[in-house]
């Protein structure tokens, strides 16, 4: 899977989570905004983490060299 496809999945998960939170704990506009902020922050954090690790392995300058003991 490519970078953009997976990013799209993250986006999708984020949207679903936001809708889910909106439907399940609807407690007025102020609280909903807080929930939305939390979901967006969480998704961005998770996506960043994944994207960093994925990009770092995209064109590696070094490759795994097996240990003699293995």
């Amino acid at each position: 899977m490519g970078f953009f496809v997976t990013s799209l999945i993250f986006l999708l998960v984020g949207v679903i989570a936001a809708i889910f939170v909106r439907l399940c704990c609807n407690r007025g506009p102020s609280t909903n905004l807080l929930h939305l902020t939390l979901v967006i922050t969480a998704i961005i954090c998770c996506w960043m983490m994944w994207a960093i690790v994925y990009l770092a392995q995209l064109k590696p300058l070094i490759v795994p060299i097996l240990n003699e003991g293995d």
Binding site: T6, W50, V53, Y54, Q57, V63, P64, L66
Partner: peptide
């Protein structure tokens, strides 16, 4: 596709 490649583990690099 997701996370660190398992092959890195235990390798010299």
């Amino acid at each position: 596709s997701f996370g660190v490649d398992p092959e890195w583990h235990g390798s010299r690099s």
